[in-house]
Design a protein around this nucleic acid. Structure first.
Ligand SMILES: [Mn+2]
Ligand SMILES: [Mn+2]
Ligand SMILES: [Mn+2]
Ligand SMILES: [Mn+2]
Lengths: 217, 217
DNA sequence: ATTAAAATTTAGACAAAGCTAAAAATTTAT
DNA sequence: ATAAATTTTTAGCTTTGTCTAAATTTTAAT
């Protein structure tokens, strides 16, 4: 499997996660930052290899084999992200690009030993679960901050949007995973949320509250 | 720079190390396990990029810029080999293939932090020196076991041939880097060398003695 | 000094992965 | 039910890196 094929499988996986139906050519083209015609070519190749189910004009869908392959790449990506943060002093907004490269290194021993070395982490620096070596993913109970009612408490456990911009903004607000917060009030006008954290009190926009996962406590 | 270009630069560097003259197309083709015609194409591309000096039918030679690039890839290769052995329980005969992949990961921070994490190692698991970030290589004083005279002592510090077969053979003989040995006798008939190591005494072939580096003590 | 052999380069093809422009199918709007 | 708009596919071209076969240059042998 080539690097490019692996990236398409990953994209297919992430796009199909919620939607159960086949994924459209354009949707893939958008996340892959490429042209629809290129997507059609690649989907045909992956279909030849039985990793994707494809009917002309009807979109694409991972087969079980394709899904397993995709999950394995995601496992590598997330383990490397943990390594970069825990061992090499990377911050959570710096790891993604490097992990995008490292996830394509081919060596079973490498990834198993990395898992041992990191002491079997269950989530990556963005709170995303790390699939085990069989491709099983432990889903953690988490909800968006925006869904908490006034008075409820939660611990930050993940981000939905893990763009550099959002992560750096959270850093500026001193919001880190593990922090406990309380919803003090919600503003009906713009859906902003006022939260208490430690002994500070801040207000975050609706957009922010809809991209930060918490675990209710 | 592509992965393939980087591999050619590395090959050029290793081939030109001893020989000061230009490297022949066939010599490159051999180590790259490819055809001479492919080498000609690539050398032209690298020449366009000013990384290689090239005159038709006259072989190729790295420019200063090309040499620096090559040394940097070698630095990455060797640091990753140290990581694999020291942190991930790889043995010295398992690291090369994986390091061949890891050496192409592009991230300055990654390699600098890896160097810090490993505490600035000076040699890789095969005793080869690790260039510093400026491309300087500290040459260690080492000689082939075959050059020691009867009665002389040495510490194993490296291998000239680092093929899996040779490394595994050394493992079987329980010869590791750091071991001290004494030359007990040399057999004129086949140039084999009898050595004492700890409280054992073994005889190694001329070929072996010509591929094991020691530091005289 | 020719000729033969070996090394090197060129020409032409191919696969992967991308692109643009045009054609075809599907979806949406009237 | 047509027509218009959108989506998707096809056709043809490009680049990287490889190959084989043929041509060229260099080196070695008579
Ligand atoms: Mn990531
Ligand atoms: Mn992540
Ligand atoms: Mn190596
Ligand atoms: Mn090595």
């Amino acid at each position: 499997m080539t690097l490019s094929e692996e990236n398409y499988l990953k994209a297919l996986y992430h796009l199909a996660k919620d939607a159960k139906e086949a994924v459209s050519t354009n949707a893939i083209a958008e996340v892959m930052e490429t042209k629809a015609s290129s997507v059609t070519d690649m989907i045909k190749r992956l279909s030849e290899k039985k990793l994707v189910k494809y009917k002309r004009y009807q979109g694409a869908k991972l087969t079980e084999e394709g899904k397993l392959y995709a999950v394995n790449v995601i496992r590598k990506h997330r383990l490397w992200e943990v390594f970069l943060v825990e061992k090499l002093n990377f911050s959570w907004d710096e790891v993604h690009e490097v992990a995008e490269q490292l996830e394509h290194i081919k060596s079973d021993k490498l990834i198993e030993e990395l898992d041992v070395f990191l002491d079997y982490p269950s989530v990556d620096p963005h709170g995303d679960p790390i699939p085990d070596k069989h491709g099983n993913i432990q889903p953690l109970p988490k909800v968006l901050l925006a869904t908490l009612k006034v008075g409820e408490k939660g611990v930050c456990v993940g981000v939905k949007n893990s763009s550099k911009e959002f992560l750096q903004y959270l850093d500026k607000l001193e919001i880190s995973l593990g922090n406990e917060l309380t919803v003090l009030s919600k503003e009906p006008f713009d859906n902003s949320v006022s939260i208490g954290m430690g002994n500070t009190k801040i207000s975050v926009s609706s957009l922010t509250a809809n991209n930060l996962y918490v675990k209710k406590v």
